[in-house]
């Protein structure tokens, strides 16, 4: 079996084992594709000093990793639980100084990933000037547009993550992954050194063979390993597959509001014998 499926890992734990302590890890927002089962495996293996990049913002994945002590820094346009309010572990970690914060804005993250995708060191971007974000980001630069007079413009550095981690509806044995219109996942995969993916199901056929869906497929060129994880984004949702489990998200937000509540939640979550499929 393994000879025919060289990129298919046995388990989410096997994917988590490929993410080293200290890695720069790109993650998707809650509305996109969250590999929550691997997040749990990362916490189970007690990952440390991760540098999270939100593409472009972060939600439950980041809050769990931060609360579990796995995170050294966060670069994102925002971190929140959406309708369920603030991300409590993130908020506490910012206030205590437990994590280093690289506050950003959505298009800077996208441009940084696009620079990495092109293999160039930076990209220019309109807007943003006058924001305090610029003052607090010494790695951003304002220059004069060399093609015009008196036209200041922001330059932002390439964001090259060690690993892009995400969840998608379908993959195939070769490691091709169908993401449909969720093309921020394509951008993440192009920009990162390696990509690890969980999928709802493994397709029998080659996903690139069908022209009707090929444009929504990340080719195996970018994918290092994938694992089967039905309901792998739970309790957040996956477009076309299942909606977010609002009751479960509300239960998390309520529990995590206090450190002791978060600790109890985490113990219970890690102890779940089976992934709630």
């Amino acid at each position: 079996m393994v000879e025919h499926l060289p990129k298919v890992a046995d388990s989410c734990a096997a994917l988590a084992a490929r993410i080293e302590d200290g890695a720069r890890l790109a993650l998707a927002p809650d509305y996109s594709g969250c590999a929550m089962a691997v997040i749990r495996a990362l916490i189970q293996r007690d990952a440390r000093d991760l540098h999270l990049v939100g593409v472009p913002q972060l939600g439950l994945q980041a809050d769990l990793l931060i609360g579990a002590g796995c995170v050294a820094s966060v670069e994102a346009a925002a971190v929140s639980l959406g309708e369920q309010g603030a991300a409590p572990c993130f908020t506490r970690a910012v206030q205590s100084g437990a994590i280093m914060l690289k506050d950003s804005t959505c298009p800077v993250i996208h441009a940084g990933l696009q620079a990495a995708e092109k293999g160039v060191p930076f990209l220019p971007l309109r807007g943003i000037l006058g924001s305090d974000l610029v003052r607090h980001r010494p790695d951003w630069r304002v220059i004069d547009n060399p093609f015009a007079e008196h036209d200041p413009i922001l330059l932002v550095p390439a964001i090259r993550a060690d690993v892009a981690l995400f969840h998608a509806a379908r993959g195939d044995a070769a490691g091709n992954v169908w993401i449909g219109v969720r093309r921020e996942l394509m951008l993440m995969a192009h920009a990162a050194t390696s990509s690890l993916v969980t999928v709802e199901r493994l397709a029998e056929q080659d996903l690139l063979a069908d022209d009707q869906i090929a444009a929504g497929v990340i080719p195996d060129l970018y994918i290092d390993a994938l694992a089967l994880a039905p309901k792998g984004a739970w309790p957040v949702g996956l477009r076309g597959a299942y909606p977010a489990d609002q009751a479960a998200l509300a239960a998390y937000a309520a529990a995590a509001a206090k450190p002791a509540g978060f600790a109890r939640y985490l113990t219970d979550w890690l102890a779940l014998p089976d992934w709630p499929a």
Partner: peptide, 16 residues
Amino acid sequence: YPRSPVRWPGSFGSAY
């Protein structure tokens, strides 16, 4: 900043 006693999610795309 950065250790804001009252901290909100972040700037999202507003600056742009």
